[in-house]
Design a binder for these strands. Structure first.
Length: 718
DNA sequence: GAGTTTGAAACT
DNA sequence: CAGTTTCAAACTC
């Protein structure tokens, strides 16, 4: 069956990260009969961001039309297959298993096998009115294809009491329905099994067992033939929260469910449509569309908010009412930091603040996502502070989108130049309008946000956008090249010195690490927000050359560092792999069979390596000793000062110099001056006078010494 | 700090 | 895929 046990779900995050570790479950052919006939392009390579997704909940939230009083549900559907088609067209229906324990994950099962062969564009809609429509996948018959790494998150909060809940039977909550689709490019293997896994992410309270989701969400997943690629997951998570938070299945949440394929079909429902270009899958973008739950029941969400792909009106809005609006997403193993911009809690939505959203994929077209409200998460630089994004009021359509029903789009900043906003003219960080060309998204590196913190807010919105203040959130570092998160966090950010690459090639470490250049020594740098268009192109070019380009080169070892190895291997010829020229040595790992190095000395038994290790250890010991010595000395000095200070006033145990206070010195000087005056008065020769003064000085010293320990403040009397 | 060496990335 | 060039970091002086 499509349902994955909760235990298995717990493992999902790691599995998702490690694509190889993920084993696709073979679905009975009956489940995806149509899929067999279809062939999906498997060209897409997983995007680093997407591959790292495990930690990041990928959510497509479908706003439910349930009454506001109902609790929010987030359904997370995980597609575990390598090649995944999340199309609205698929006939597959998801069913919620009845009587699911509150803690137990929700199970959606496709009532029918997903049809991959459908040539007509199809639309999937959540009960909330969110629909995914496949626009032009004639041959693929898939509404849209998401590469494995891509995440599409549609999160809507159902607010309208009149909303159609029938499609989501059992789901009574009006809160947030989240459907996350992570689709990886897949080769269209002949019948790829489709699996649905729906997990109740947070709370199951409102969920009734009887609810069937079949109509609500239809997902198709084509299993890829490539063994290497891990299955992708689409997760529908149900959350109770009425807050603006995006329902995200916790990384290790036991409630997480894995759904192989999910397709929602809600034809005819007015919906926002988001068209995703096929190539988008290549880029591995994450798209998060979330409609936050309306806090006030008085304002039911409108059933449909249409996002038109390719439409000029794609809008991205980042409400900034609170710092909570920005959610940090840390993806283990990924160099990118994702920042999830979450819709503000409450707001007045006017016009068609989309309670419904439609995502349509068009085969050959570059994707244009048009949504009144879309939020995006972008890979971020680690340890950066995120800043606010303020939604701007939409002016063009005359619709005012409020934070309540906003859809959020999370996308990697990198790929998809088609949807890349033109940020060139934007003041850094303040407001990001949907770029020239219909694109309503923005890529914000964390540090950039930090840089912009002084700005009142950062707004990502369509040209007509909204404006609202946003909060600030600090991001954690992502693991970098096999380094643990903490290591990465401790790792000082290196500034590059690029001159000719414009910091848009992998030569540039900043760029390679998915970071914007900041405080670098580079010249003619394009690795910044001002050149986001160029940067996006460069990223795409890199990914075209090597889909793994932004993935960590050092695989994480499962059994310790010994298992860490360079995914690609080094190619050293002269360094013996014992210098930092060698990426293996630099990563403090030994060369492996992946390496093509010549004269390698970076292996376990290498005497040279051992010598270096010993030297390095010795040096480290010396450094540690020096540090310890400095620390000790500093501590002693500090302690001494601490002890001596009170001794001045208290007396006993004082250091000798502590008795020579200013007062004592002045008294001594007076005594000496008086002695000199007396010598002058009696007309003593200079030599005698000097002797008298010295003798007096000696007496003063004796008095000081004798008074030491006797009084708090020695007195000098001539 | 300037110049050299090195190997990954990019290019052909 | 292999050979060459470009590039920036690592290294040396």
């Amino acid at each position: 069956m499509d349902v994955v046990s909760p235990e298995l779900n717990i493992l999902l995050p790691d599995e998702i990260m490690d694509t190889e570790a993920i084993v696709m479950d073979d679905d009975p052919p009956s489940e995806s009969p149509a899929a067999s006939g279809q062939s999906q392009p498997s060209d897409n390579a997983p995007i680093p961001m997407e591959t790292d997704v495990p930690a990041v909940p990928e959510i497509v939230s479908l706003c439910s039309n349930a009454p506001p009083t109902q609790r929010t549900q987030a359904l997370t559907t995980s597609i575990t297959t390598d090649s995944t088609l999340c199309s609205t067209t698929s006939a597959t229906q998801l069913l919620l298993t009845p009587s699911i324990p509150s803690s137990s994950p929700l199970t959606l099962r496709p009532t029918t096998a997903s049809t991959l062969t459908s040539t007509t564009p199809k639309t999937t809609s959540s009960p909330a009115g969110v629909s995914l429509t496949s626009g032009g996948l004639q041959k693929l018959s898939a509404p849209f294809i998401l590469s494995a790494n891509h995440q599409i998150v549609l999160n809507k909060v159902a607010s309208s009491p009149g909303a159609d809940t029938t499609r989501y039977p059992g789901i009574t909550t009006t809160t947030t329905t989240v459907l996350s689709c992570i689709a990886k490019k897949t080769q269209v293997s002949s019948a790829g099994p489709i699996k649905f896994i729906i997990t109740k992410a947070v709370n199951n309270k409102g969920l009734t067992a009887q609810t069937s989701v079949s109509n609500v969400i239809t997902g198709r997943v084509l299993s890829t033939s490539s063994p290497v690629t891990p299955p992708r997951t689409i997760t529908l998570s149900e959350t109770l929260s009425t807050s603006s938070k995006i329902a995200i299945s916790p990384l290790k949440s036991p409630s997480k469910l894995t759904v192989v394929s999910v397709a929602s079909q809600v034809p005819n429902s007015p919906q926002k449509s988001v068209s995703l270009p096929l190539n988008m899958a290549h880029l591995g973008h994450q798209i998060l569309v979330q409609q936050s739950t309306a806090t006030s029941p008085a304002k039911p969400m409108k059933p449909v908010q249409t996002v038109t792909v390719g439409g000029p009106q794609f809008k991205t809005i980042f409400p900034h009412s609170t710092s909570s609006n920005v959610q940090q997403i840390q993806v283990p193993g990924s160099r990118f930091h994702y920042v999830r911009l979450v819709t503000a809690t409450t707001g007045s939505s006017t016009g068609q603040a989309g309670s419904h959203s439609t995502i349509s994929s068009m085969t050959a077209k570059p994707m244009v996502v048009n949504t009144a409200q879309v939020r995006m998460s972008v890979p971020f630089i680690p340890a950066q502070t995120m800043k606010q994004v303020v939604p701007k009021p939409l002016t063009s359509s005359g619709q005012v989108l409020t934070t309540q029903t906003q859809q959020r789009l999370i996308m990697p900043a990198t790929p998809l130049p088609q949807i890349q906003p033109n940020l060139t003219n934007l003041p850094p960080g303040t407001v990001l309008a949907p770029g020239s060309g219909n694109m309503g998204y923005a890529v914000l590196p964390a540090h950039y946000v930090t840089q912009l913190q002084q700005s009142a807010y950062v707004t990502l919105a369509s040209s007509s956008g909204f404006s609202t203040p946003t909060g600030i959130q600090t991001q954690a570092r992502l693991p970098l090249n096999g380094l643990s998160t903490s290591d990465a966090a401790s790792r000082p950010r290196k500034s590059c010195n690029c001159n000719k690459s414009q910091c848009l090639k992998l030569y540039c470490d900043c760029f390679a690490n998915g970071e914007f250049c900041q405080s670098c020594n580079c010249t003619n740098c394009f690795n910044n927000l001002e050149h986001e268009t160029e940067r996006a192109k460069a990223i795409k070019a890199c990914l075209d050359r090597n889909p793994e380009a932004f993935k960590p080169k050092i695989g994480k070892g499962k059994e310790g560092e010994s298992d860490r190895r360079h995914s690609k291997g080094c190619n050293c010829k002269r360094s013996g792999c014992l210098k930092n020229y060698c990426e293996c040595y630099e990563a403090k790992i030994m060369c492996s069979s992946n390496c093509k190095c010549v004269g390698c000395k970076n292996f376990e038994e290498s005497p040279e390596r051992k010598t270096l290790m010993h030297l390095a250890d010795a040096a480290e010991v010396r450094v540690q000793q020096q540090t310890a010595a400095k620390t000790k000395l500093s501590s002693q000095i500090s302690d001494l000062l601490t002890r001596t200070t009170p001794a001045i006033t208290s007396g006993g145990g004082r250091m000798p110099f502590t008795f020579v206070t200013k007062k004592v010195a002045e008294a001594t000087c007076e005594c000496l001056l008086e002695q000199a005056e007396q010598a002058e008065l009696i007309q003593q020769p200079q030599a005698t006078a000097e002797r008298m003064i010295l003798e007096e000085f000696g007496r003063c010293l004796m008095r000081i010494i004798s008074s030491a320990g006797k009084t708090d403040c020695p007195s000098i009397n001539c």
